[in-house]
Nucleic acid binder design. Structure first.
Lengths: 130, 130
DNA sequence: CGGAATCCAAGATGATACTG
DNA sequence: CAGTATCATCTTGGATTCCG
């Protein structure tokens, strides 16, 4: 139990273009990664369940994102060898932790949407945002 | 204190395709949005400073992302009317809050990168991930 | 049902050049 | 310095089709 360095100030690392964390961060914060990880926070679910639960996701991106998350060690894929294929996805301990953080973020945004829309004013200079 | 329904179930909202939160979430979790918000957590900074600080970002995406974040009420743009243009960007109170959450997420990922790489195994079936 | 493969459209991203 | 405009490219995302 070699403890981890406390204030290890890894922060500077993240800003480096070559920081490996960026890849993981990219998967986690990808369009569907966030929603999927939050969704899986409710417990193991099947492919079809997830597709219905996360509105707007296509089968392709669902599969793709699940692979990313599986590779990163956040999601576990459990295939039951039964007649009608049955595959479940569930969070790993690592996944539970990110899921909590993402849920916190997502819920905060939902709850403060009003304040954002109120504060929303046209950009000072120009350029349009989606 | 059941005044604030714990199960305020805004969660289901997020999974809805038409949930307005998705737009904000998209900006916040965009490739550069995360890094920029975390970077601005260190205090107000100028355009050039941010560009140098966040490795790999192009001027275009820096400007673009700043506009998104300004529109969403997370960032304040302060232009000083001086000879050599001087513009500073700083977080709004709202921005400070997301910044904290994103920093938490980013730092957690950095600190657990080892565990992820260790857990990383090829996907059970196929498909390649970035 | 749970994918895999393919084709395609749209948006994100980058490099570069130009301006106030 | 702080952008803006343009063009080229890469990736994301979607629809469809096929398979075990």
């Amino acid at each position: 139990m070699n403890d981890t360095p406390p204030g290890h100030a890894l922060r500077g690392d993240l800003f480096s273009e070559s920081c490996p964390s960026r890849e993981v961060l990219k998967h986690v914060t990808s369009r569907w990664g966030v929603l999927l990880l939050v969704a899986l926070g409710d417990g193991a679910q099947r492919f079809g369940e997830l597709r219905r639960k996360v509105g707007g996701i296509s089968e392709k991106m669902l599969a793709q994102t699940l692979v990313w998350l599986e590779q990163d060690g956040f999601v576990l894929r459990i295939a039951h060898p039964v007649a009608p294929p049955r595959v479940e996805y569930r969070l790993t301990p690592l996944g539970e932790e990110v899921s909590r953080r993402l849920k916190d973020l997502a819920l905060w945004i939902e709850e403060n949407l009003g304040a954002m829309l109120a504060a929303r004013r046209p950009p000072s200079h120009a350029l349009q945002g989606s």
